[in-house]
Design a protein around this nucleic acid. Structure first.
Lengths: 131, 131
DNA sequence: TCTACTATCGATAACGAATCTCATTACCGA
DNA sequence: TCGGTAATGAGATTCGTTATCGATAGTAGA
């Protein structure tokens, strides 16, 4: 029996309110700053649940897990600004097929893949040039 | 001034003696089991150096950093068996170009990318079927 | 609506990977 | 051989994450 609690909903909303990837710790701080008495463990549990249910994407960076709300049910990858965290969801049929084909060519089955692109978004590039 | 120590060489050899990716902790255990009195911090330092110098590749998995000896100086990706850790180095010019093009299309510059394929190698698939 | 059941919460302890500290060691040029 | 100093290593520390367990509060059924 799955229950709907305001805590879970708060995490979902806080996640949706961020453009890019955020850490569980950061999300917890934001919620506490906003006056919510939510616990850190609850934020971790909620994020893990959301990730399993496909409502959030997660990736590992610099030793911590980052999460982001994403369009559910659809396989996609991310183009992430390494400066401001701005994230763009990208489709990559070509890469999907390449991954499958490459795996098969080496005798591998049940292939999954990790594909993320990091760069400097237009705004951050201009800001860097201006300084 | 860079110095050559037996510890650094021991890490290099231990890394080369493994087919797939191994964690710093595992490598340290192996070295200690083999009778080497090398310290954990030294293993971490040596691995970080090797990664910087291009003699080792690293990737994040399950909350820890994994390392592997690799052909230096050449950009490539990995096809990794999620069961036995067997790793195959793969070239992916198509993916390189796709990543650059996609980043550029969204206004991103200085694009780098993370591309790894996980699967079940032929031997592990057969073993799984046999059981 | 009321009640019982139990999923969920949350403070905190525990855990583990990675890093830092600093006294000691030993590499290497002179 | 000698001295400066890079490198080492045991242990402490940091930090993100997970486990524990009593308290809390959704939810189904009476």
């Amino acid at each position: 029996m799955k229950r709907n609690t305001w805590q879970r909903e708060a995490v979902r909303e806080a996640l949706g309110g961020n453009d890019g990837f955020v850490s569980a710790q950061t999300l917890h701080s934001e919620l506490r700053d906003a006056g919510s008495p939510i616990g850190l463990a609850t934020v971790y549990r909620a994020l893990a649940d959301l990730a399993v249910e496909g409502e959030a994407d997660s990736l590992q960076a610099e030793g911590e897990s980052l999460y982001r709300a994403c369009t559910p049910g659809q396989h996609h990858h991310h183009l992430i600004c390494r400066n401001c965290g701005l994230t763009v969801e990208i489709e990559a049929d070509a890469v999907e097929q390449w991954a499958q084909a490459t795996a098969a060519a080496h005798g591998f089955s049940q292939a999954t893949h990790v594909v993320d692109v990091f760069g400097l978004c237009a705004a951050c590039r201009l800001a860097a040039q201006g300084s």
